[in-house]
Amino acid sequence: MNVFRLTGDLSHLAAIIILLLKIWKSRSCAGISGKSQILFALVFTTRYLDLLTSFISLYNTSMKIIYVGCAYATVYLIYAKFRATYDGNHDTFRVEFLVVPVGGLAFLVNHDFSPLEILWTFSIYLESVAILPQLFMISKTGEAETITTHYLFCLGVYRALYLFNWIWRFYFEGFFDMIAIVAGVVQTILYCDFFYLYITKVLKGKKLSLPA
């Protein structure tokens, strides 16, 4: 565990909590892509199946349970409790265009052709693109609430910090995982455009709105 890894995890946790609180406090999930949230729930479910097979540390186990629990709670709030506020008309990204190729890739490029490993690989690949329905939704409506941009910022920073974690681990532990690294780079790149808007607009007190 190094500082990048820990702050990355905390940033990820902050993102998840920010989103849950935003929906809970405003009693509304307007502007949030339910499809992205379903994909994240699928990511955590397929990645953390090892909760049932191996124990790594109390930190590892509790964070996994919190992540997966919050992911399902978010999906529940969007599709059940506050369903009336869900903006389905703007959440039109075709997720099968992500899930099917990612599933195929997980079968073809993995560390070991076993069910758990393929599911883990699937989750890594899927996570890298799971935010696309949310970004698509923002590009369609042309704007995002400021709290939603804080969520996205924390979520993007998390994977960027993991990149530094992997550089650290490569140098100091001789450890690297090519699948995670490549997917992590892709994932971080997808946020670059958003990072630019966040820094130039939101941090200067303006609402994130895209030119028409």
Binding site: N60, D177, A180
Partner: peptide
Amino acid sequence: PEEGDEKDEL
């Protein structure tokens, strides 16, 4: 260590 050895990351 072997690639993708132990999955201690989240």
